[in-house]
Design a protein around this nucleic acid. Structure first.
Lengths: 124, 124
DNA sequence: CATTCACGATTACAGGCGTAATCCAATTAA
DNA sequence: TTAATTGGATTACGCCTGTAATCGTGAATG
């Protein structure tokens, strides 16, 4: 099992989810525009490997890093955790909070309706 | 401004949101069933006061604690933060993740539809 | 009054996190 | 071949968190 992925670590994961495998230099390149230094990114890659959410294979003296968990799995787990921790598992309250409070644009609302309609017709 | 409320600290907030003001002993009472010791709860109350999310007033030698932020505000902020950090602000992806993956029961689905219908008829 | 409680305040301490700097071995350049 | 470079591994370090223990003071008790 793997330890939790922190907020900043997840930003690194995001890069690898976009494209992988990548060398550390490539990951650094994609992150330093956002103010991250090479050292910091390398540290994160190390921790992520230790946490077993990122793997690597040697390519000469470099490593090629890849995510070990999919973004979908990660998002699903995070969502479940958020629901449980913040909303005490009360899905309705979570939905109400997102839907009201104008946190949804008209377009998002209609998108959501479509989602629900699809879901309604879904077998099982 | 106030520092972030941690996960465990939020559990203490939850108690105060249910009823307040409460003395520390009362908060302890409501939490030790869940394995928290008196010392730990007191520490959390202290930190929450320092973080300016809980206030107190003296009642003799005791303190009466009250939340300074409402549960609604807190949930809304947390939701916004979650959306931004985990889903990179992509509300549609968040919704899709919750709606699909069978994270919604039939009842929650119909509740959500009702919410949307209400919202549709809402002025502004 | 002297001693003991009760309670909040202060201090503790290990592990995680953000953010690197330093170390070391392999590689490439001089 | 020796020096400089490169890249991962190890170490650092202060702040936050979870989880208390100890301190100090005022109150209750003997």
């Amino acid at each position: 099992m793997s330890n939790r992925v922190s907020e900043s670590e997840k930003i690194v994961m995001e890069v690898l989810w976009q494209k992988s495998p990548l060398t550390s230099i490539e990951v650094v390149a994609r992150l330093q525009e956002q103010g991250w230094t090479e050292k910091t990114v390398k540290s994160f890659l190390n921790r992520l490997v230790k946490k077993e959410v990122v793997s690597f294979e040697r390519e000469g003296r470099r490593y090629l890093y890849s995510p070990l968990v999919s973004r979908e799995t990660f998002l699903k787990d995070e969502s479940q955790g958020f629901l449980n921790k913040v909303f005490l598992g009360d899905m309705k309250e979570l939905l109400a909070t997102f839907v009201s409070n104008k946190q949804l644009s008209d377009e998002e609302l209609s998108y959501l309706r479509d989602l629900l309609d699809e879901d309604k017709n879904k077998p099982e």
